[in-house]
Design a protein around this nucleic acid. Structure first.
Lengths: 119, 119
DNA sequence: GTAAGTAAGTTACCAATCTGAACTTAATTT
DNA sequence: AAATTAAGTTCAGATTGGTAACTTACTTAC
């Protein structure tokens, strides 16, 4: 719903940022880690506990094995989760959140609250 | 850093989700609104107050006018922000967060806390 | 009075990303 | 001997996203 106002536009000259520059970078740095299409959905599963590759693939609707591999590697590189391979045949691989990854739960919690209120 | 464990794999049979199904949908619903590449960065600017198209374009590094138009329309459709056009020449357009949009600040706040602790 | 400037976009095209299906590996069960 | 299994990899095709140039309609500068 766009509005078309017939008033004069106040110049936005007296702008004082309420949120300092440092936060901008915080957000960008966080998005580097969890900003992609799939990161949150992988985290959603791993907050419930350790998961294996196939389990993740089944529980995240629409993800391809390639995208799952990509995001798991990405999150591992950023220290959010740990990959553990067991020398079974065929090989078994488990993914578990690190403390750094567990801490992302606060963000998910706020998303849940927002969603409950507004969607 | 991958680990290769030489132990037997514990079957993950006694899995009881700590986070109920409902949250999964909450997350997906939230991501529909703010899941894209640029949403958070637009929000970051609008939390500081009303902004015009050109201001947003200058303050969000690397965004193209097309991408900015796309995300602004998307956020407007989801009731997160309001677009107001003034019949000046050339036209002036202002974007402002709605209460629904303001409420997203909690999520950003948690992202900031996580970033401060871990990045 | 001609030319440049301005704000907020469009449009057309090109590049990066993502998906789906098939393939791989090596041992185990049928 | 063939099928199965887990965790991927590979490749072609589709989708998404980005870049550059263009548009509109009026104002100000030369």
């Amino acid at each position: 719903m766009s509005t078309l106002e017939n008033e004069k536009v106040a110049p936005l000259s007296n702008y004082v940022p309420k949120i300092p520059k440092e936060i901008e970078c915080s957000i960008e740095r966080t998005l580097e880690v969890i900003g992609g299409k799939w990161a949150f959905l992988v985290l959603r599963e791993l907050f419930c506990g350790t998961r294996r590759f196939g389990e993740l693939q089944r529980q995240i609707a629409g993800i391809s094995p390639k995208s799952l591999t990509d995001i798991l590697r990405h999150l591992e590189e950023h220290g959010v989760l740990e990959r553990t391979a067991f020398p079974t045949v065929p090989v078994t691989v488990e993914y578990t959140l690190t403390p750094k990854g567990q801490d992302l739960h606060q963000i998910i919690k706020e998303m849940k609250l927002w969603s409950a209120k507004w969607t």
